[in-house]
Amino acid sequence: TIDDAFRAIERAIQAENEGRYREALKHFLDGGEMIVTAAEKEASQKVRNLLLHKGKEVLEWAEHLAEWILE
Rank of each mutant, 00 (worst) to 15 (best):
E18P: 02
K56F: 09
D30L: 14
E40C: 15
K41N: 11
V58Q: 00
A39N: 03
H53V: 12
G19Y: 01
L52P: 05
F28I: 04
T37C: 11
D30F: 12
T37G: 09
V36F: 13
Y21N: 01
A62Q: 00
G19P: 02
F28N: 00
I9E: 01
T1Y: 08
A38W: 06
K54G: 04
A39S: 04
E33D: 09
L50V: 09
V58M: 05
K56P: 04
A66V: 04
A38E: 02
G32E: 03
E18G: 05
V47L: 14
K54M: 15
E16Y: 15
N49C: 12
G32K: 05
I35W: 06
T37P: 01
A24P: 02
E40W: 15
L25M: 06
F6L: 09
Q45I: 13
A43H: 13
E16Q: 15
M34V: 05
H64M: 11
E16V: 15
A43I: 14
L29R: 11
K54D: 03
D30T: 12
D3N: 11
E16F: 15
M34C: 08
K41S: 10
I2C: 09
V36K: 11
E63K: 14
V36I: 15
L65R: 00
L59A: 05
A39T: 03
N49R: 05
H27V: 04
K41T: 08
A5W: 11
R22D: 10
R11Q: 11
F6C: 14
A12C: 11
E71M: 12
K56D: 02
A12D: 00
L50E: 13
G19D: 02
H53T: 13
E67C: 12
Q14V: 10
K56V: 06
D4F: 03
A38S: 09
A38V: 06
T1F: 09
A12T: 00
E60L: 12
A5D: 04
A38H: 06
V36C: 13
R7H: 07
R22V: 10
R22Y: 14
V47K: 08
E23S: 03
F28Y: 14
L25S: 01
K41I: 07
E23K: 01
H27D: 07
W61V: 02
V58K: 00
Y21P: 01
I2Y: 06
L29C: 10
G55N: 03
V36W: 06
A43R: 10
A15I: 02
V47F: 09
A8N: 06
L29W: 10
D30Y: 10
H53Q: 15
K26T: 06
F28P: 00
A62T: 03
G31N: 00
L25N: 00
G31F: 15
A38K: 02
A66S: 06
R48C: 13
L25C: 08
L70S: 13
A66W: 14
K56I: 09
A43Q: 13
H53L: 15
E71K: 10
K46P: 07
A24C: 12
F6A: 04
R48D: 04
D4A: 07
A43C: 12
E67A: 12
R11V: 04
L52E: 10
K46T: 12
E71F: 05
R7G: 02
E18F: 04
R48Y: 04
K41P: 02
A66E: 10
L70F: 05
L51N: 00
D4S: 06
E57W: 11
K26E: 08
I2G: 03
E71H: 09
V47W: 07
M34Q: 06
A8R: 10
H27T: 02
F28D: 00
A15K: 03
W61G: 00
M34P: 02
A62V: 06
L65F: 04
E63Y: 13
Q14I: 11
E10Y: 06
E67F: 08
L59F: 12
N17D: 04
Y21G: 01
A12E: 00
A5P: 02
E67W: 09
R20P: 02
L25E: 00
A24G: 01
I69A: 03
E60Y: 06
R11C: 10
E23N: 02
I35N: 02
E18V: 08
W68C: 10
A66N: 08
A8P: 00
H27W: 14
E23M: 03
E10M: 12
E10T: 12
T37I: 12
S44M: 12
G31A: 15
E67I: 08
L50N: 09
A39G: 02
N49K: 04
K54V: 15
L50Q: 13
N49T: 04
V58C: 06
E16H: 15
E23R: 01
A66Q: 07
V47H: 04
N17R: 13
A66I: 10
K26S: 06
L50H: 10
L65M: 04
T37V: 13
D3P: 05
R20S: 03
H64E: 12
A38Y: 07
Q14T: 08
A43T: 14
E10D: 07
K54A: 13
K46F: 12
W61A: 04
E40S: 13
W61T: 03
E33K: 14
W61E: 01
